[in-house]
Each structure stands twice: as structure tokens, then as C-alpha cells.
């Protein structure tokens, strides 16, 4: 049924069209006050399939934000090309199906959270009953119902991040671009954001997100690319990237002390080497989450902040 349409117009993507295509992208900045050129991205190529969650990982200044801005047509490539669902990033039409959460997002501080979502919704062509239905739905989704009537000026970092996420998906885009969605947000808030990303993934939305921390993308990404100084240094499926093929890990609970010695001899007899043994540590994040779980007051959605 969709087949006919796509033969009529080249711009209608089929299932094979990647959500994002970046080919040999190079971006060189030339700050107006200095003669020195800044190569932010160098010959970068990758693609994000439809329904895939892709992570861009790299330290600060490695070119993640620049890559995303080129994908969204906010910055022009020096060379190479980027496409969104088969449409060149420079074309306004390529933004029809994309939601963007910029790094450290900021919104009009005179608007309330609700007005902000209405404003962005209208820019995406949503009006009337549809908008009246969508906005409360989004506010509930990001847990900002109780703060919806307050001006953005009073929002905390975590709340801004969540209202930013909500405005990015107001028009139910098929691709969401998130630049450091969890930066500066406490673990509880960032877990909430991660859950939202997982939910989008479950709904078949393609996601590209950036982070300077591998752990933050580990749980949500299908694939990830590690970029450093504007170049892709490693790319692959998350399991492949994080798996240490040569090693195995066992966690035992309640065994007698002699068991450790027995395992040691077993390992040595097999000609292998015991790399580490001991009590596993919980992560600080887990600890934080566990110890703040019960003490949390039951008041609306703004409690994390």
C-alpha cells in the first residue's frame, strides 16, 4: 500500500531508508575573531536504522553536538552530507519527522511549561483538540503536571531537560535527537529519562543520543559510536563493544569459605587464570537510588528536583 506512494515521490522513505545517514561529514569552524580553523568533525560516517537507538559517545569537545546540529540543518557541513529519512538535512522538510533536545536546553522563561509545549506543538502544526489532548499527555509522561502552570524561569535543570524532551516529541516524530539528555541531572531524573528513551524505542522511534559517559548509554543503545577529536574511533553493537570475549564472570551467594579455594584449583587445573575474586560492589548510582527510594515524598512529578 505504501509501495505505490514511494514510487511516486522519491522523498517518501521506505523501510530500507536509514533514519539518519551521515556520510564523510567534515565540519570546520572558522571563528570570526581568529584566523585559526577548528576542525570539529572530520570525515565522520555512520547510519542509524529505523527503530534503532544509536549512541554517540566521546569526551567534551569531540564533535558530538556539532554532528547533531548538522543532522538537523542548524549548521552547514563543510563537506560530506547528512540525510534524515532520505531527505537532505538542509531542506526544511527533513525536520518534519524529527524532534531535537539540545544540550543544556533553555526555553522562553516567560512561558509556563504548558505554554511551552503548546507553542512547540503549534510550530509543528498541531492545533485545537489534538493539541489540548497531547499536551497533558506529554506533561504526564515526563512527570511535570504539577509544575505545568509555573513559568520556565523557575525550573530546575532536570525539569528543563524533561520539558525539553517533551517538546522534542510533541509531534510524535519518528526520529528523536537527544544531545546529552542526562547531563547535569541526578540519578533518579536520569533514570526517568532513560525509561522514556526505552519507551520510545519500544514504540519504534529511532533515537540518536550523545553522552560523554559510556555507562549512561549502555542500557538503552543498540549501537554506539565512539568519537574522539571529531573522528569515529570505534563503532559497533553495544554487546560487542562492552563484552570481554576472553573472560567469564560468576557471582556466587552463600557458598562456604572452602569453595573459593576449590574454584581456584579448578581454574588452575584447566590452565586458566583467575583474574579477580572478592565481594562485588554495588554502584554508587544503585546505592543512591536504593537509599532515596523510601524517603521520597508523594508529591506530584517535581519531586526529583
Amino acid at each position: 500500500m505504501e509501495r505505490r506512494k514511494s514510487s511516486e515521490s522519491l522523498q517518501v522513505p521506505n523501510e530500507a531508508t536509514p533514519a539518519v545517514l551521515v556520510e564523510h561529514l567534515t565540519k570546520v569552524f572558522q571563528p570570526s575573531l581568529s584566523r585559526q580553523k577548528v576542525p570539529a568533525v572530520v570525515d565522520l560516517s555512520f547510519r542509524v536504522g529505523q527503530g534503532e537507538v544509536y549512541g554517540l559517545i566521546g569526551p567534551n569537545g569531540s564533535g558530538k553536538s556539532t554532528t547533531m546540529k548538522v543532522i538537523l540543518g542548524l549548521v552547514q557541513a563543510t563537506s560530506g552530507r547528512t540525510e534524515v529519512f532520505g531527505i537532505d538535512s538542509g531542506k526544511v522538510g527533513s525536520r518534519r519527522d524529527v524532534g531535537f533536545l539540545p544540550e543544556n536546553p533553555y526555553f522562553y522563561k516567560h512561558m509556563t511549561g504548558r505554554e511551552t509545549l503548546e507553542f512547540y506543538g503549534k510550530l509543528c502544526g498541531i492545533h485545537g483538540a489534538q493539541l489540548r489532548e497531547r499536551v497533558p499527555e506529554l506533561l504526564a509522561l515526563v512527570g511535570l503536571e504539577s509544575a505545568a502552570g509555573r513559568p520556565i524561569a523557575g525550573y530546575s535543570k532536570g525539569m528543563l531537560q524533561r520539558i525539553g524532551l517533551a517538546q522534542a516529541i510533541v509531534h510524535r516524530p519518528r526520529l528523536v535527537v537527544l544531545d546529552e539528555p542526562t547531563a547535569g541531572v541526578d540519578p533518579r531524573g536520569s533514570r526517568h529519562i532513560r525509561d522514556l528513551i526505552l519507551q520510545m524505542k519500544a514504540e519504534g522511534t529511532s533515537v540518536i543520543l550523545s553522552s560523554h559517559l559510556l555507562e549512561q548509554v549502555q542500557e538503552v543503545c543498540d549501537r554506539a559510536g565512539i568519537i574522539y577529536k571529531g573522528r569515529m574511533v570505534l563503532e559497533g553493537r553495544l554487546e560487542d563493544l562492552t563484552q570481554l570475549q576472553q573472560q567469564m564472570e560468576y557471582v556466587v551467594e552463600g557458598g562456604p569459605p572452602e569453595l573459593a579455594a576449590e574454584i581456584q584449583t579448578l581454574v588452575e587445573r584447566a590452565g586458566a587464570k583467575l583474574v579477580s575474586a572478592g565481594h562485588p560492589r554495588t554502584t554508587l548510582e544503585k546505592l543512591f537510588l536504593e537509599s532515596t527510594e523510601d524517603k521520597e515524598p508523594a508529591t506530584g512529578g517535581t519531586r526529583h528536583d
Binding site: 524529527v98 524532534g99 533553555y106 510550530l123
Partner: peptide, 14 residues
């Protein structure tokens, strides 16, 4: 400065 332009122009707004 506030980068509100990013969110506006990343919508389909010429």
C-alpha cells in the same frame, strides 16, 4: 544566546 533558536528551527520552521 539562550539557544531557543535551536529548538524552534529544528521544528519544520523555515
Amino acid at each position: 544566546e539562550d539557544r531557543t533558536l535551536y529548538t524552534i528551527l529544528s521544528k519544520p520552521v523555515p
